[in-house]
Every structure is written in structure tokens, then in C-alpha cells.
Measured scan of single mutants.
Amino acid sequence: TLDDSATICRVCQKPGDLVMCNQCEFCFHLDCHLPALQDVPGEEWSCSLCHV
């Protein structure tokens, strides 16, 4: 889900339109996540760090 609060991106440390991982609660810009996300993920989304 998009989170436009004062939360910062885990990768670039900047605020903005972010998606939050449902497991670790880290936030990412779509372009900062590795691999980059093309679209906003669904409600139950886990980042690539949680899939390691």
C-alpha cells in the first residue's frame, strides 16, 4: 500500500510515495526496491529482503 507519511525509504533515506512491507515494515520507493516495482503491490506484500 502507498504510505505518504513522514516515513523514509529504506534504500535512499528520503520521504515520498512509499510502499511498506507487511513483514518487516520497511518502506521503499517503487524504483528503489530491488528489483524495482512496476506497480504498487497488493495489500499483502513482502519485500525482497524478507524473501532471502
Score class of each variant (00 low, 15 high):
26 F>D: 12
10 R>Y: 08
5 S>Y: 02
52 V>A: 15
13 Q>R: 12
18 L>W: 01
37 L>S: 11
3 D>E: 14
19 V>F: 06
14 K>M: 09
2 L>Y: 13
15 P>G: 10
34 L>D: 15
7 T>R: 14
21 C>Y: 02
31 D>P: 09
38 Q>V: 10
24 C>I: 00
1 T>V: 12
2 L>A: 11
21 C>L: 01
51 H>K: 04
17 D>S: 13
42 G>F: 09
2 L>M: 13
17 D>L: 06
52 V>R: 15
35 P>Y: 01
16 G>H: 08
39 D>H: 07
2 L>R: 08
36 A>N: 05
3 D>H: 09
39 D>M: 08
49 L>P: 14
46 S>K: 15
22 N>S: 12
41 P>T: 02
29 H>W: 00
30 L>T: 07
3 D>S: 08
31 D>E: 09
35 P>V: 04
34 L>T: 12
37 L>W: 14
18 L>F: 02
46 S>V: 14
39 D>F: 08
44 E>V: 08
20 M>L: 05
28 F>H: 05
17 D>V: 05
8 I>W: 05
32 C>A: 03
48 S>F: 04
41 P>E: 11
30 L>S: 10
3 D>G: 04
26 F>S: 09
37 L>A: 13
48 S>Q: 08
41 P>D: 08
51 H>C: 07
7 T>L: 04
25 E>F: 10
40 V>H: 05
9 C>N: 04
8 I>Y: 14
40 V>F: 13
31 D>A: 08
16 G>Q: 04
6 A>T: 04
52 V>K: 05
20 M>K: 05
29 H>L: 00
36 A>D: 05
22 N>P: 05
29 H>Q: 00
2 L>W: 06
19 V>Y: 09
21 C>M: 00
22 N>C: 11
38 Q>W: 04
36 A>V: 14
37 L>V: 11
5 S>W: 06
28 F>S: 04
35 P>Q: 02
24 C>P: 00
15 P>F: 01
7 T>V: 12
13 Q>P: 01
23 Q>F: 07
40 V>E: 04
9 C>R: 00
26 F>C: 12
33 H>D: 14
30 L>E: 09
23 Q>L: 09
40 V>Y: 10
48 S>W: 13
35 P>F: 02
17 D>E: 10
44 E>T: 09
25 E>S: 14
19 V>T: 06
34 L>E: 15
10 R>D: 11
7 T>E: 13
8 I>C: 14
43 E>V: 09
24 C>F: 00
42 G>D: 13
7 T>S: 11
45 W>V: 08
41 P>V: 08
7 T>I: 12
47 C>L: 01
44 E>D: 09
8 I>D: 03
18 L>M: 02
6 A>G: 10
5 S>R: 12
20 M>H: 01
4 D>V: 15
39 D>R: 08
34 L>R: 15
28 F>W: 14
9 C>T: 00
15 P>D: 08
14 K>T: 06
21 C>H: 04
1 T>N: 15
8 I>H: 10
24 C>V: 00
16 G>S: 11
11 V>E: 11
25 E>L: 10
38 Q>D: 07
40 V>Q: 05
4 D>R: 13
42 G>S: 07
34 L>N: 15
45 W>E: 09
6 A>S: 08
30 L>N: 07
26 F>L: 06
37 L>I: 09
38 Q>L: 08
24 C>Y: 00
3 D>W: 06
30 L>Q: 04
43 E>P: 12
51 H>E: 14
35 P>R: 03
44 E>R: 11
24 C>D: 01
39 D>P: 08
29 H>D: 01
30 L>D: 01
34 L>I: 06
16 G>T: 01
35 P>S: 10
43 E>N: 11
35 P>A: 03
19 V>S: 02
45 W>Q: 11
15 P>E: 12
46 S>G: 06
17 D>W: 03
24 C>N: 00
38 Q>S: 07
21 C>G: 01
23 Q>C: 12
23 Q>E: 08
13 Q>A: 06
6 A>P: 08
13 Q>C: 14
33 H>S: 13
20 M>C: 08
28 F>A: 11
5 S>D: 07
29 H>S: 01
12 C>R: 06
42 G>E: 10
41 P>C: 08
51 H>S: 14
39 D>E: 15
